[in-house]
Amino acid sequence: MSSYYDIDAILTDSQKVPCTFELTVPALGYVEGNAGQDIKQGTKVELPLWLGSMLAISQPAGSSPLVTLDLPSALSPRVINALKADPRTIDLRALAPHFYSLGSLMLELFEEDELVDVMTDTFKKRAAEIADQAHNPRGALGEGADFLRGLDENERQLFRASHDSAKAVKTWMTDVKKK
């Protein structure tokens, strides 16, 4: 499980999600850029995930929640359809540097069965490609460069792990030859 100091978990929590305010809050205008003003009911603001989810879940005094949460643009239907079409060509890093972590956190808040399927499939397809690239010594420089640049943080760790273990075996083989 992720620890309190896990930098990836912290960075995932700080990604912005679109929120809509359900109430007028006095003097909170600075979150949308006009300090000193009230924030009006129905205003859409991009808030970090940790703040947005807290506000959306908490229900002060039994009333309706303060804000409602929407799916971030990285998980919009447009992206999901593109992922369904071909997971390998999407630049996940441009969408969200911690795409899968963000996705799984959003899935805890939203019930989206289709999203689970699409993300699982995407991860599997891209993992196979990552493994091939990690074992191909020219992959990181040649034709695979674009794909590798589009990996999210999770996939980068996977690439590194798989590359390191392949390298360790190769190093051992050359060491045996030297003896």
Partner: peptide, 28 residues
């Protein structure tokens, strides 16, 4: 044995990733 040593990091990483994604479904 050597093949396990070589594949362990990758396969373990994939399973971890899949478990993370499927965590919400697993919970429900």
């Amino acid at each position: 044995g050597m093949e396990v040593a070589e594949g362990r990091a990758f396969i373990g990483g994939v399973i971890d990733g899949l478990r993370k994604i499927g965590a919400s479904r697993e919970q429900s």
